[in-house]
Simulated scan of single mutants.
Amino acid sequence: MAWKSFVAMGDSFTEGLNDAYPDGSFRGWADLVAARMAVDAGPDFGYANLAIRGKLLGQIVDEQLEPALAMRPGLVSFAAGGNDSLRPRVDPYALVERMESVVSRVRATGADMILFRFADVTVNLPAMLGRRAAVLNDGARALGEKYGAYVVDLFADNAFRHPHMWAPDRLHLSPAGHRRVAGHVLNALGVGCDDQWMLVPPNPEPTPWLLARGADLRWAREHLAPWVSRHLRGHSSGEHVVAKRPQLAPVTGDIAA
């Protein structure tokens, strides 16, 4: 099936952190998917990306759903809840209920939809987050079955346990990680992808204990501490960020692998 338009909703995962273009802006899996889809759909294909880093699920629903629906897209992706899972107090079951409100609205328009079962976050982050993520993942699968949405199962892909798939902050995907997500999405849609995107290098040799602890300390100093400080002050990384593609627009040469 050749969709004529694609709107991506979400947070940093969909905005594309940390897969940078030469100018420092972010590409990510959604841009890659849009570029590949445009090859089949032709010059009339339109792509919008409303995702903004740091957004909670409720903010994504409140700020992105109505603009997305107003564009009357043929395909919508929705990935949210990761930032909520990092909060000390969160009810993941309530998040799934809010997700359903989005899926039902989008599917009622006749648009197709992409949902995600997220990669195993316990590779890099505390097991508590894994329990919350499991509820979100189970919810995405159930919603996909109920509403006939495409569900991209990243959790089932052990390649995301490879450190090469993650950026130094251990939270966002690396360029290789984004390409692998794009490959999974395109394969799920029946479009097909560049085989190179699915390649995974051999696992690195185990890091000696002392060096590994040193790396943990650097990560805590450079990434964890700033995140904690920002949230204690009530700030978000997306406060002054706007959507990179707020309206449907043709996919041009600025989006490339």
Rank of each mutant, 00 (worst) to 15 (best):
T122Q: 12
A94V: 12
D19S: 05
L50E: 01
R36M: 11
L173M: 12
L189Y: 01
V151Q: 05
G238A: 07
W29A: 14
D216M: 12
L224D: 02
A256D: 11
L211A: 15
T252Q: 03
D157Q: 12
R233D: 07
A243H: 03
T14Y: 06
N158H: 14
G28Y: 05
M1S: 15
L136D: 01
R218I: 14
M128Q: 13
G234M: 03
D112Y: 07
S229K: 15
S77C: 06
V96L: 09
A167K: 08
K55C: 06
S12E: 05
A225I: 14
L95Y: 00
P246V: 05
S174P: 11
R105Q: 12
H178K: 00
N187G: 15
Y150K: 03
F45G: 00
L210T: 12
W3E: 04
E222H: 14
W227P: 02
A38V: 03
R245D: 00
D19P: 03
V242H: 12
A149C: 09
G183P: 11
Q59F: 06
L189I: 03
A176S: 15
S25C: 07
F45P: 02
A156Y: 00
F116C: 00
L32Q: 03
L129H: 07
A30W: 03
L211W: 00
V123D: 01
E66C: 05
T122P: 05
V152N: 08
G238Y: 04
P175Y: 09
G139A: 10
V181C: 11
S85R: 03
P208E: 10
V151A: 05
R218M: 15
E97A: 15
A220P: 02
R221M: 12
L143P: 01
Y147K: 02
G234C: 04
N187P: 12
V123P: 01
L186D: 07
G139W: 03
L224P: 01
H162N: 12
A257R: 08
